[in-house]
């Protein structure tokens, strides 16, 4: 597969700065005030038990949800600004593909950004391994293919930041490998990747740094090497040793 992820717009200067961010629903605190800084390159992986707030934080960082308090700044600009959001893309756990052909799903985004180009579309489909299925209805693809198309479509926006919310959940190893290849390609092309996963071995394969969440807080943010060899937080240690802390499986899920 070719590297087709367009080099990200270099004028976007990360890191991401999150200050005193909190979020609550009907009086229930889902995210406690938290701070976070993320580098402008590489793959950041969010780990943690179910209900820790990973997907919620991802949606807040992408501007899909508004926090109750605190600030999220990309390049010193608020996440609420359209110019900032236009430089980000997100792929969801369950891809929402438009009811049209595979190629038309890519064309839709390229046209939306005034970048309609059959060459660019073909590059993206080739990179996703879907070139021979461009005329097929997108929703007739397999689960893994749909997710690959969703990532290709996200890359069609030429993002500086790519958010991935458990993109390989319930996919087989081969499909997972394809997705990881796409993620690597994107990161190599200079796109910042922030990804939620429950797959520890996947995190080991992809992560440059790990954001470990527990009970709506960031328990630890460290380099992947450090986290997997000697996690600084007790929650991280416990989770790594048992993979899933039994006492937390009953906590309310908002991932």
């Amino acid at each position: 597969m070719n590297t087709t992820a367009t080099p990200a717009r270099r004028n976007v200067q990360l890191p991401l700065q999150v200050r005193a961010l909190s979020y609550q629903v009907q009086g229930r605190q889902l995210l406690s005030p938290l701070n976070l800084s993320i580098d402008s390159t590489g793959i950041s992986i969010m780990l943690g038990p179910n209900g820790a707030g990973k997907s919620l934080l991802l949606r807040l960082l992408h501007g899909l949800l508004k926090p109750d308090s605190g600030s999220i700044l990309w390049n010193q600009q608020s996440i609420g600004e359209l110019s900032v959001r236009m430089q980000q893309s997100m792929v969801f756990q369950k891809p929402v593909l438009l009811r049209r052909s595979v190629a038309a799903n890519i064309d839709y985004v390229l046209k939306l950004r005034n970048k309609a180009s059959t060459q660019r579309r073909d590059e993206l489909l080739h990179s996703a391994g879907l070139a021979d299925k461009s005329a097929q209805p997108a929703r007739s693809l397999s689960g893994g293919e749909q997710q690959r198309l969703a990532i290709a479509r996200a890359l069609a926006t030429s993002p500086a930041v790519l958010f991935l919310d458990e993109p390989t959940a319930s996919l087989d190893p081969e499909a997972t490998s394809h997705i990881e290849h796409q993620v690597h390609q994107a990161a190599r092309a200079g796109i910042k990747v922030i990804m939620v996963t429950h797959d520890l071995s996947q995190a080991r394969r992809l992560a440059h740094d790990v954001i470990f969440m527990s009970y709506g807080t960031i328990a630890e943010h460290s380099s992947a090497g450090l986290f997997f060899s000697n996690p600084a937080s007790v929650a991280g240690k416990t989770w790594l040793s048992s993979y899933l802390q039994p006492s937390q499986t009953n906590s309310p899920s908002h991932d």
Partner: peptide
């Protein structure tokens, strides 16, 4: 969420939904 993520303007989002639910 998907259309919001792609920064699709509301009018274009309505057009998209109408087309996608055409059946």
């Amino acid at each position: 969420e998907q259309l919001h993520s792609l920064c699709v303007p509301r009018f274009a989002a309505i057009q998209t939904l109408l087309w996608d639910t055409r059946a």
